[in-house]
């Protein structure tokens, strides 16, 4: 935040107690921030085919696959327990759950290596090559 002096802290010590959870990335925007019956609906109706997974959400056909986090990385789901009263106050977020893989879904298209999120996982390795220390 460049316009004010507030600081956001991630409470890293909460990583240890954080649960490992299944994570889904959907090809739509859901105007909802809160719990959802993922295992009862989505997981329960997911079909595993040879190269892809299939499910439907709100009557639309989705195809997806599992994707691992880049080597050496852990996915974090962050939660802000106490919302600050103003944007001047410091913020603290805790790690509510962690994941090392996620399932991402495309709308009707089979998953493939050109999918945005698959390509995004290239960055850490490339970043390391660009910014890492130069070895002799």
């Amino acid at each position: 935040m460049s316009c004010n002096s507030s600081v956001t802290r991630v409470n890293v010590s909460s990583v240890g107690q954080a649960q490992r959870v299944p994570v889904h990335l959907l090809p739509c925007e859901i105007e909802h921030n809160g719990p959802a019956q993922v295992s009862q609906y989505l997981t329960a109706t997911t079909k595993d085919c040879k190269l892809e997974k299939m499910v439907s959400f709100r009557g639309r056909g989705l195809k997806g696959q599992e994707l691992s986090c880049p080597q050496g990385y852990t996915g974090l789901v962050l939660k802000e327990t106490n919302k600050p009263g103003s944007d001047q106050e410091d913020r603290t977020v805790k790690v509510s759950s962690v994941f090392d893989k996620l399932t991402y879904w495309n709308l009707e298209t089979p998953p493939n290596s050109d999918d945005t999120v698959v390509m995004a996982m290239d960055w850490p390795e490339l970043a390391e090559a660009i910014h890492g220390p130069v070895e002799d």
Binding site: P27, C28, E29, I30, E31, H32, R58, G59, R60, L107
Partner: peptide
Amino acid sequence: RFSWSTAQTLMDSKGVTVHWDD
């Protein structure tokens, strides 16, 4: 059948809104 207007109307009024890119 999600494609029926009955289902759509109920989801629009009592469910959360979902946007698709199409």
